[in-house]
Amino acid sequence: MSNSPLLQAKGIRRRFGHVQALDGADFTVHAGEICALIGDNGAGKSTLVKILSGSDQPNEGEILLDGQRVTFSSPTAAQAQGIATVYQDLALAPELPPSENLFLGREILRPGLLGRLGFVDRAAMRREAALQFARLGVRLRSAKIPVAALSGGQKQSVAIARAARWASKVVFLDEPTAALGVVQTQRVLDLIRQVRDQGLGVVLISHNMSHVLEVADRVEVLRLGRRVAQMSARDATVERLVAAMTGGVSQPEPAHG
C-alpha cells in the first residue's frame, strides 16, 4: 500500500433541501487496497459514492485524484479519469454475451476499411474478454451465451470485470454480494481481491460486516454525513464497526493535511 492516497475527499458537504446528507465528510483510498465504506442507512454512503463517481456534485469540499484537485461533472467525466462504479443493478445488457457487455459502448472495430465502415470485430472482443476474465479468475459457463443465462454471481463478476477493465484508478462496488449465495459470494470476494492485486483502488460499499472484515484492507465508517472512524481491517471487529456506525463509541478523527 502506497503512502500517498490515490483518491481523497476532503470536507465534502452536500445538502438536499433541509437534509444535510454529507456534513464535511472525508474519505481516502490508496492504490492496491480494498477500502470498505460502511455506515448505517442514511449515513451518506450513497451520496458520497455518487459525488466521487461523478453522478452528483458537492456543495462544498474538494476531491483529489493523485494529489491533483479534480471535479467530476458527470459519470463519463469520472470514467475518463479512471474511476468506474458498479451499481447494484449491474447495468448489463442481458441479451448480449459477456464479451459484448465488457465492450459495451467501447466496441472493438475491424482493422482497416471495414473498421472505418463501422464493422465490429466480435472475435477480438471475445479474445480480449477471455483474457480479462482469465486475469481475474472469473469462470463462465460459456463465453457466448447471453448474460441473462448466467448465475447472479457470474453476472456480478462480468460487471466487476468490466469496471476493472476500463478503470485505471478506482473501482466503486455497491453491495456486490447483496443477493448472492455462499459459494458465489466467495467467488466475488476473490474477484475483488484480484482487482485490488491489479493495482486499482477498490471501494467496497457493504452492509455485510463479515464480508467487509473478510476482504477489506481498511475500513472507513460514515455516520450522519461525517467520517467517524477509519481503521485497519486487522484491528476491526464487528462490535467495533457497529459501535462506530451507531455512535456507540466514536474514534477520534486523525488530523489530515
Binding site: T76, Q79, A91, L96, L104, G105, E107, V120
Partner: peptide
C-alpha cells in the same frame, strides 16, 4: 456493424447503454 450491436444493446438495456456512453 457497431450500429447493429448498439441497436441490440439499447433494446436490451437502455439505461446500461446510456451509462456505457
Amino acid at each position: 456493424t457497431r450500429f447493429g450491436l448498439r441497436t441490440f444493446a439499447v433494446g436490451s438495456n437502455t439505461e446500461a447503454s446510456r451509462r456505457a456512453g
